[in-house]
Amino acid sequence: MPERPKSLPRPWKPKARENDKMQHRPRSHDLYHTARWTRESREFRKKYPLCVKCQQEGIITPAEVVDHIIPFPLCDFWDKTNWQSLCRKHNIEKGNKDKRLLHERGINENHRENPA
């Protein structure tokens, strides 16, 4: 059977660059990578399709992620009363705030307490 020819370089197409920022970012907790989280967060966004923070500001923006109001290591992961729909901008802002809070409490990114 004949072999498929190798693709030729395309000088008009820029080469893909690695995103250095994301290369060193710690992986999120394994629960965020389950089929259950994917399914339930999608259903939650269907029920609450707008970013709650944008709504408080009088802006209508579609939600892109489901966020834990109280950061996950400090609460039950599956408690839907602790979930909120956010746009990407507000999720990043809240995530940075939560990371500072967890760092102050001595909880690392693997959601375990740091040894004293």
Rank of each mutant, 00 (worst) to 15 (best):
R88Q: 09
K13L: 07
D98G: 12
F44I: 10
N114I: 11
P73K: 12
R112T: 12
R27N: 02
K94Y: 09
K46I: 03
T61N: 12
A63Q: 05
P71F: 07
D76T: 13
D76Y: 05
V66W: 09
H24D: 03
I92F: 12
H24P: 00
N110T: 12
K47R: 15
Y48P: 03
P11K: 01
A16I: 06
C75T: 15
C54V: 08
E64L: 08
V65P: 00
W78N: 02
M22W: 01
T81E: 14
D20V: 07
L74C: 10
R45T: 04
A35S: 04
V65Y: 01
P73V: 10
E109T: 10
P49K: 07
C75V: 14
C75F: 15
N96R: 10
K15D: 07
R39L: 13
I59H: 08
I107Y: 02
D79H: 05
N82M: 07
K46G: 01
I60P: 01
G106Q: 03
L50F: 13
A116W: 05
S85E: 13
K6S: 11
K15S: 04
L86T: 14
G58N: 10
W12R: 01
T61V: 15
Y48N: 15
V65E: 09
C54N: 08
H24E: 00
P26T: 02
T38I: 11
N19M: 03
F44N: 11
P71H: 07
W37E: 04
P14G: 01
E18F: 07
D76F: 01
E57F: 05
F77C: 05
P115K: 09
G106W: 02
L101C: 06
P115G: 06
C87G: 06
H33K: 03
N108Y: 02
F77E: 12
C75A: 15
R10T: 00
H68T: 04
R112A: 08
M1S: 09
R25G: 00
H103D: 14
N110G: 06
E57V: 02
P2W: 00
K53Q: 12
P5M: 07
W78D: 05
P11V: 00
L31I: 04
I69T: 01
N114K: 14
E104R: 11
E57Q: 14
K94T: 13
C51V: 03
P11M: 00
C87P: 12
K46M: 02
R88P: 02
K47E: 03
I92V: 15
I107F: 08
D30F: 01
M22E: 07
D67F: 07
K13M: 04
F44M: 11
E40M: 15
K53M: 09
I92C: 10
W78T: 01
E113I: 08
E57G: 09
N108K: 04
E40W: 13
N114C: 11
Y32D: 01
R42V: 07
L101N: 08
L31F: 01
I59P: 04
E40N: 13
P71S: 05
H68Q: 09
P5Y: 01
R100P: 10
C54I: 09
K47N: 05
R27M: 10
N114M: 13
H111C: 05
V52L: 09
L74V: 11
E40D: 15
N114L: 14
T81F: 04
N110C: 08
K13V: 06
P115A: 07
P73F: 09
P14I: 00
P14A: 02
S41P: 14
D98N: 15
R88A: 08
